[in-house]
Amino acid sequence: MATVLESDPASAADTFEVAGCQIGSRLILGTGGAPSMEVLGEAIQRSGTALVTVALRRVLPGVEGSVLDVCQRTGVQVLPNTAGCFTARDAVLTAKACREAFETSWVKLEVIADERTLLPDPHELLDAAEQLVGLGFSVFPYTSDDPVLARRLAEVGCVAVMPLGAPIGSGMGIRNPYNLAIIREQVELPVILDAGIGTASDAALAMELGCDAVLVASAVTKARDPGAMAEAMAHAVTAGRLAARAGRIPRRLYAEASTSAMGLAEL
């Protein structure tokens, strides 16, 4: 793994475990939206990620060079997704195709309800998750920020839950941090924030709320300078994680002096 953070002892040792594997970075990069493979390669490198998502689409005759070349060159592991599926049936078929194409049983399960919101369809999602677990897949479901649905997905045997912060590509950040905190508390699996991140502070907040990792795609690939944003996200994830472990002070309505009043001069 080529990473800007390797020299940083605070983060280098801070891997997380999912499906029995140690993942070397808490930042997962989605590859959608990058303007070129060169830009994508730079973003992957500067993000320090160890895991990137890829999709499956119809072969276009005459198109050479693929996202897999970039993954291989940068030494990252691939997490295939079922992007674009609206039904459990299509998602299960796509996951099976991913397993053949990428020779991995890991799948990021996306079953969306409609094109406008790209929100997960809870019923189809849970159905697909259950079927795929039964077929031996390690399922990473893209889910809403509903704690009950997250719990159900954990119960059917998913290996992580991936709640959204806001709709895909919206860049709106984390709209319901309280739900995320509840998911964190109620689900023992890794919680990976997926979708909605707009900028580095959103990623830091996700980690401060106790997420194990953050997935970012558009916020990096569609930034004016994707490489620089990728590096910013890496720092944000590290900072947020450290802050979460350090323990923040409680919020108060009124001030609390940090300087003692003892020994204050009477002038």
Partner: peptide
């Protein structure tokens, strides 16, 4: 027949 290949993708 559907012949599919790796493509860029992810939220």
């Amino acid at each position: 027949v559907e012949v599919l290949r790796a493509a860029q993708g992810g939220c």
